[in-house]
Amino acid sequence: MSLRTKLLLPLGLFFSAISAAQATTLEQALTECRAKDNVIERLACYDAIDLSPLANKKPMPERMDKSVTEIAEERRQQVKPVQPAPAPAPTQPVEPAVKPKPESQFGLQVKSEVDEIEDISDTIADITKTIRGKQVIHMVSGAVWQQVDSRYFKLKKDMDVYIERGSLGSFYLGHDGVNGRIKVKRIK
C-alpha cells in the first residue's frame, strides 16, 4: 500500500461513516454501505450505522418473553378437557357365557382344553369337492374339514370317522376298518 493510500484511507472511512450516520433510515444506510467497492470502507460504513433506535424494539414476539410453563398454562386454559360420555346403564343383567364343548372347538386355533383332546369321532353329513379335487367333509356336529394332501380316500355320507391330532399341529381323518387316513385341516 502506498503512503498516499495509507493517509487517505482513514479520511475516506471517516467521511463514509459520517454519510452513513446521516442516512435517514436503516435501509438507506445499508444500501449506501453495500454500494462501496472497498472492503475496508464497507466495513467502516457498517460499523458507523447507528443501531440505537433498534435497541428499544424487541427482536422476538412478546410470546417468546414468557416462560415455557406460562405458555403451557395458556394452552391448557384454551383447550377444554374432553369429558367421557357417561356409560349407559345396563338394561338386562349380563349372563355368563355358555362354555362350548371342547369337541366343538377341536381343530380350530383355540388354546385351551381343546389341546388336551387327542382325537374325536363324528359322522359325515355331506361331502363336496374343491376345484382342485380336494374333499371338503361336513360333519353332523357342524365342523367342516378340508383334505390337505392329495391321497385317494373313499368317504361316504353317514360314515362314522375319527379325526386325530398329528405332530406339529396337523390332523388326520380316518375310519375303522381301513388302514389309511388323509391329512385334513379344519376350515369351520
Results as ranks from 00 to 15, higher is better:
residue 181 R to S: 15
residue 24 T to N: 10
residue 143 A to G: 08
residue 29 A to E: 00
residue 6 K to N: 12
residue 152 Y to C: 08
residue 128 T to S: 14
residue 12 G to F: 05
residue 76 R to V: 13
residue 69 T to F: 14
residue 13 L to K: 11
residue 103 E to R: 04
residue 41 E to C: 02
residue 147 Q to D: 05
residue 110 V to Q: 07
residue 109 Q to W: 04
residue 124 I to T: 02
residue 144 V to P: 00
residue 42 R to H: 03
residue 154 K to Q: 13
residue 103 E to S: 06
residue 7 L to A: 14
residue 131 I to T: 12
residue 45 C to Y: 01
residue 116 E to D: 13
residue 116 E to H: 11
residue 21 A to T: 08
residue 4 R to P: 00
residue 78 Q to F: 01
residue 131 I to A: 12
residue 17 A to F: 03
residue 51 L to I: 10
residue 151 R to I: 03
residue 80 K to I: 09
residue 8 L to T: 10
residue 77 Q to Y: 02
residue 8 L to S: 10
residue 132 R to K: 15
residue 43 L to G: 06
residue 151 R to W: 04
residue 116 E to S: 14
residue 21 A to L: 11
residue 58 K to P: 00
residue 50 D to T: 03
residue 160 D to R: 13
residue 135 Q to E: 14
residue 20 A to W: 00
residue 110 V to K: 03
residue 27 E to H: 08
residue 44 A to I: 08
residue 140 V to R: 06
residue 98 V to Y: 03
residue 13 L to N: 08
residue 124 I to Y: 02
residue 16 S to F: 06
residue 98 V to N: 02
residue 86 P to Y: 09
residue 99 K to H: 07
residue 127 I to A: 05
residue 74 E to G: 01
residue 107 G to C: 10
residue 100 P to R: 07
residue 96 P to M: 04
residue 8 L to G: 00
residue 170 S to W: 04
residue 71 I to F: 04
residue 67 S to C: 12
residue 63 R to E: 14
residue 30 L to A: 06
residue 150 S to T: 15
residue 117 I to F: 05
residue 169 G to E: 09
residue 17 A to H: 02
residue 64 M to F: 12
residue 12 G to Y: 02
residue 156 K to G: 09
residue 123 T to R: 12
residue 151 R to F: 12
residue 6 K to C: 11
residue 188 K to E: 15
residue 34 R to I: 09
residue 104 S to R: 08
